[in-house]
């Protein structure tokens, strides 16, 4: 019989303590971020989809079209193309597309790139209506950013 009353007593005590905690939090400050009105700045190392880096001297990309990123990507979502320009040792980049629907953001491409031509972008609002909208043409994005 004693277990019955002890159970009853410390049971009600635990219930009361629980109510106290939730009341303390109810009158406490709100900690949530109101997303559409307020947004968080992304941390420097946040891994968004990759983007071409603008070389300050030449003003365009640094890519030497070696295709290392294309080979090392586990899901094969990078296609790179370039053509020889006489007189210039380095190939010129003509096409750099990233199929973001298959990208797993592992960062192997950024790590393996010898010329540090690509880095992680910081945007995350990537809602879109069609799958094709996610095939980014990074070269065009680089120009748009400059323009």
């Amino acid at each position: 019989m004693s277990g019955y009353f002890r159970d009853l007593l410390d049971g009600t005590k635990s219930l009361a303590v629980g109510l106290g905690i939730t009341f303390k939090y109810m009158v406490g400050p709100v900690i949530t971020l109101q997303y559409p009105h307020q947004t968080l700045p992304m941390q420097p190392r946040f891994r968004g989809h990759i983007d071409l880096v603008r070389d300050p001297e030449t003003g365009t990309d640094r890519c030497i079209v070696c295709g290392m990123c294309q080979k090392t990507c586990p899901s094969g979502c990078i296609t790179v193309a370039g053509d020889k320009v006489e007189g210039v040792k380095k190939k010129a980049l003509t096409l750099y597309t990233l199929d973001f629907t298959k990208c797993s953001l592992c960062g192997l491409c950024v790590e393996v790139c010898p010329a540090d031509a690509i880095t992680f972008s910081k945007d995350y609002n990537l809602a879109g209506r069609s799958r094709e909208a996610y095939v980014f043409d990074l070269k065009k994005r680089l120009e748009e950013r400059k323009g």
Partner: peptide, 13 residues
């Protein structure tokens, strides 16, 4: 609203 504030969020707004 009560549920919101107990869970430290705002509730319908």
């Amino acid at each position: 609203k009560v549920a919101g504030h107990i869970q430290r969020r705002i509730g319908p707004k």
